[in-house]
Design a protein around this nucleic acid. Sequence first.
DNA 1: TATTGTTATACTCTATAACTATA
DNA 2: TATAGTTATAGAGTATAACAATA
Lengths: 175, 175
Amino acid sequence: MTDTHAGVQPLDPRQLGAYFVLREAVSLLEHQVEQQLRADGDISYVQFQLLASLTNAPGPLTMTQLADGVVYSRSGLTYQAGLLEKAGLIARGPTPEDERATQVTITGKGRALVERVLPGHVELSRRLLFDPLSDDDVRHLGDIMTRVRDHMRAQPPRSAAPRKRRPTSPAATQD
Amino acid sequence: MTDTHAGVQPLDPRQLGAYFVLREAVSLLEHQVEQQLRADGDISYVQFQLLASLTNAPGPLTMTQLADGVVYSRSGLTYQAGLLEKAGLIARGPTPEDERATQVTITGKGRALVERVLPGHVELSRRLLFDPLSDDDVRHLGDIMTRVRDHMRAQPPRSAAPRKRRPTSPAATQD
DNA sequence: TATTGTTATACTCTATAACTATA
DNA sequence: TATAGTTATAGAGTATAACAATA
């Protein structure tokens, strides 16, 4: 990459390399996982995440709670929840405390699907991600990404809710 | 769909945690980067990657070379290249040596766009990814993900994959 | 008025298969 | 026959805005 732009301090080449190889490796991983989930359970990773969130939760979640960290728009979640409900994997109903909210419950079929899909998911991540890594690598990777995640979550306005999102700065230099 | 998964050894919780936090952190990062690229240059990350590959390459690339590591189907690349060409960022022409191939060149406008977009991209990755990391973390992260990437690239395609693997070409990678 | 969630809609992107043309 | 690339097309997913109901 040419670094002939004045005014901005270029990123350390080591950082630049780490960033791009991270993106590349995760892209390859994502693609493979997507195939596995589709083949084993006919769901996407997003759908898996939603089911997994419900599985891990102590009880039903509202749509807003379910959206957190998985989806970046409310309508996106409504769309996905619609698919999951049509497939009989979740159920939606009223929330007693707040009549505006929707309570989302995972069904037995939904739990069964997670159980059916999880082994392959786990096996694949082991084969693709963990095979070439030592225990220490894994520990360090988890630690690093946890810090990064927490850092990012602390920084920007929270995701799935903002009323109005205005990306600033039009590109300035002509079209 | 019928998956005989008797006796699957569960993943070490540390690995499971590392996997999911990796996916989560990268998802947040991707989303932010996508916004930055769209705001600063009206391109997607895939399009940025294609332009960056051409910028880094010593000369023009064929479509096949350009596809490597960025896109997972030929038609997907044709689609993206069509957009980039329509925007005047790349040019496509015949390849002298092989009349079947298409030679892709980046235009001055394309280079200018990369230059315009890169500072913000770099700045964002520093702020989101590298701020909470030490130099040692970055070194380790780059090392880990390089090994993972190389490992995945060496893997033979899995069951349902319609045999169309490309040979690894050294030209178009970013690190 | 603000918030929860849905709907309508438009758009982006991906991927399979059929096709052309070269090798 | 095999490979490079395009096209046609279908489907999945996303996001914005308008909307209704409730707080």
